[in-house]
Design a protein around this nucleic acid. Structure first.
Lengths: 226, 226
DNA sequence: CCGGCTATGTGACCCAGGTTACATACGCGC
DNA sequence: GCGCGTATGTAACCTGGGTCACATAGCCGG
């Protein structure tokens, strides 16, 4: 591996994970090994429920969704991992040494580096910025999960759908099925609700495409108390 | 403070939090200050949603429930904290320096010591067992929260109620209202379901008391797919 | 033993959302 | 421009669970 290759790999990593700049040289070298750079095609499964986990993934490109699947085939998005974040559930099972309790799926083609468990453990001890980074992730994730419970338990599906739409850049390219899975519901209901949004002039619908026409009122719907 | 007082306080703490045995003497001394031992009566609020948080609570006696409240007055238990555990949400906001995103209520009279934020930060850095302990708590809590989302999203209320009952020691002393809050539902529904359990001979009902008669079938109900 | 408080029982009703079962409709490859 | 696979519309129907409005029933203090 040439100097420039190493440097490019380091740049790529640091751009996403500034906390790793302070990594000891030895760890950094092993982390930057070309073989350590993994690619997973879109739709590929990164980890399954109940499987053990092998390291701490550092996501460089793409997004991962972490979902719970119901026996009858329904799915529910728990959260999404973006580059620079981490599938904290992984750290969770690294630390708790329990197997995964959810499934991870590549939403888009994904590039990542896997930080092996021993290095992860050592870094937590020796590298304060890294530790802070991981703690921060934990904290955010816990808050997000609690938020999610509140939404699921207390909000109607139309409100949650409205919020989901507002959180994306318009026009939204997605199938109703995909939205349903994100919400833990089924396609028909999402179609029905979207139709009613369209009837009210809030959105315009097309094949795999939803255009937001009236963010204002959509927001009102999302915020409505029950 | 006499030697024996300190020693008793230390014993009390270590019994619940073995990880603190390795605490530097100075930290330990400040933690064991008699004024640091707080009591909160049953029903008292330990922290409110959106309030900032002041330290890392070490629970010595009693249990705390952490809940989300809906605008219409319904509540939903997120999790419970037992002695030796910690309200990890607190650490979450200590670390993420964001305010609380839920409410904490003493279920029983509670005794705790508050570890001030600066000491908490320092311990995380300097005291590996403490760090491991905190990480472990995080990991468990995240797994539990994900589990909870799955239950709420995919399981019927009767199943969740059955599981709730099975998780308690019989006879269960609790009002239907309290069970409802734990499940994020309302009293009438819980009464209705309990009645139907009673009709099937699964439980016997009395005022503030539920006796499990047939754990076997109750378990079957809890495990049923859909 | 009476009055009032808290916990429960219960029925009528309603609504969100899931299920089933098709009918299109769109877009792409050939 | 035909045919097929995928995405969507949609109607009828069902059910779980929430809401409302009361009726009781234990329980405790005076």
């Amino acid at each position: 591996m040439s100097i420039t290759e190493v440097s490019a790999a380091a740049d790529e990593l640091f751009a996403r994970y500034p906390a790793l700049r302070t990594l000891p040289a030895a760890d950094l070298a092993s982390l930057l090994r070309p073989q350590g750079r993994l690619q997973v095609p879109g739709g590929g499964e990164l980890f399954a429920e109940h499987s053990p986990c092998l390291g701490f993934p550092l996501l460089l490109e793409g997004t991962i969704k972490v979902v719970k699947s119901a026996p009858n085939g329904r799915e529910m998005l728990l959260y999404r991992v973006e580059p620079g974040g981490s599938c904290i559930i992984t750290s969770s099972c690294l630390l708790g040494s329990s197997p995964y309790s959810a499934r991870g799926v590549a939403e888009t083609p994904v590039t990542l580096r896997m930080l092996p468990t021993p290095a992860f453990d050592r870094l937590l001890g020796e590298c304060p910025p890294f530790r802070g980074f991981v703690f921060q992730l934990f904290a955010e994730r816990i808050a997000a999960l609690m938020q999610r419970i509140e939404e699921i338990a207390f909000q109607r599906l139309d409100q949650r759908l409205a919020r989901l739409l507002l959180g994306r850049s318009t026009p939204i390219r997605s199938t109703h099925q995909a939205l349903a899975e994100e919400l833990g519901s089924v396609r028909e209901i999402v179609s029905r609700l979207l139709k009613s949004f369209a009837d009210q002039g809030l959105v315009a619908l097309g094949r795999e495409q939803i255009t937001l026409l009236d963010r204002e009122r959509l927001q009102g719907l999302a915020d409505a108390e029950r």
